[in-house]
Design a protein around this nucleic acid. Structure first.
Lengths: 104, 104
DNA sequence: ACGTTAATTAACATAATAGATAAATAATGG
DNA sequence: CCATTATTTATCTATTATGTTAATTAACGT
């Protein structure tokens, strides 16, 4: 799993995280539909590229449009990482829940 | 939650992710114990600072040593984000599980 | 007090990010 | 064909990140 830091890095940008969240919530969307208004289309396009290269989204071509969708494995990868430590903690001393209660 | 991108960004570096993983697995550790051998102590110190500023770890002073520990809220924040979409998907059409099966 | 240990901050170099504008690619609809 | 639409690639610039060495801060043991 040397992929994880790359996955986190790709999501470590507000614009890209917003893209992923919209794709998760709305499903497949085109570059145009995902266009944010605070940056230009080329900037957006590079964000798509980062997400693609990190394996977080896939691109599908439909005529002149590029449709993007989240690869569920990426979400799964993060989920596994979190659950891994949750389980470890639960199994060893319930440190996480204890700590979380303290933090609340 | 404009915190999330910052959290992801902080974990989007292999050295920092390794620090967090060790802290999760072994509990509180000092800067010296966490020292990686591929970079210098000052470089390490800056990674601690990034993690602190992102709210992922807390620092405790013990004489001349700095002890670090993960703030469980940070892990919780990521966990919540993932589960949020898992729940959404489960509730709307089991798209995630379906997609995951297809991906396997 | 003094040298040692632990860690950080300062100053600097270089690489990687992110954004902009302009140009290119490619499919569509007249 | 040709103009339009959709999106990416090229180029350039500014900012941020990451690493180094040197200096600083602070506590320890003798």
């Amino acid at each position: 799993m040397p992929q994880l830091p790359t996955t986190f890095a790709a999501l470590g940008n507000a614009t890209r995280l917003a893209i992923v969240e919209r794709l998760l919530a709305e499903g497949e969307l085109s570059a145009g539909e995902l266009q944010a208004d605070h940056i230009t289309a080329p900037a957006m396009s590079r964000h798509f590229k980062v997400l693609r290269e990190a394996g977080i989204v896939v691109q599908r071509v439909d005529a002149q449009r590029r449709l993007y969708a989240v690869k569920p494995e990426a979400v799964q990868e993060i989920s596994d990482w979190v659950l891994n430590f949750r389980e470890f903690w639960a199994g060893s001393l319930d440190r996480l829940d204890a700590a979380l209660k303290g933090a609340k």
